[in-house]
Design a protein around this nucleic acid. Sequence first.
DNA 1: CAAACGATCGGCT
DNA 2: GCCGATCGTTTGC
Length: 207
Amino acid sequence: MRLTSDFYLRTDVVQVARDLLGKVLITEFDGLRTTGLITETEAYRAPDDRACHAWGNRRTPRTEVMFWEGGHAYIYLCYGMHHLFNVVTGSEGMAHAVLIRAIEPLEGGDTMLARRYPTLPQPPKIRPALTTGPGALAQALGLHSSQTGQNLLAPDSPVWIEERGISVPETRIAAGPRIGVESAGECALWPWRFWLRDSLFVKRGKS
DNA sequence: CAAACGATCGGCT
DNA sequence: GCCGATCGTTTGC
């Protein structure tokens, strides 16, 4: 079942980040379907969160989609080469988003391998490095910053998220500080990163 | 207009 | 563990 707007419109982005664990992220470009179980997320919340691009509710051309209604994709270029995929949440005017940091491949593994390792004559086998880390999973799924603003709820959207009845009890969820936001002051300590303890497809904080 | 800076990754030590 | 790649966004002059 595809997630509906009531999932994304909730105003507690930290809870949404937890709830996205165990959901399935899907892309279908040019008839190539790739899907993965979401295993790691981070919440970002303007205006009070200094680590959020829209901190202080500042609107720039880039952050504009963060202010849109929940259910859109915010995809931006990081370090000049990585395209990071976020899910916008909350109602219009709230700049809240969840960064998807890792997935476990479910379908389309060969397509993911071809996208990630296009120059290797023999692509490697499926392994955590294929889809662990926000830049890695976005590349594997064919996500690109040019697609920012995509509506995950549109029937013809090439990107969406599904609920497939995978049970994620609280005991499977671990939480800790977000990665790469050390310069965000006190916000850097907030435990707004979540991951599935038992997944091998998580960048750090396994176990 | 110039310049600094990333919500990272992979290769090498 | 450390370091370089690489470029759009943002801010400051």
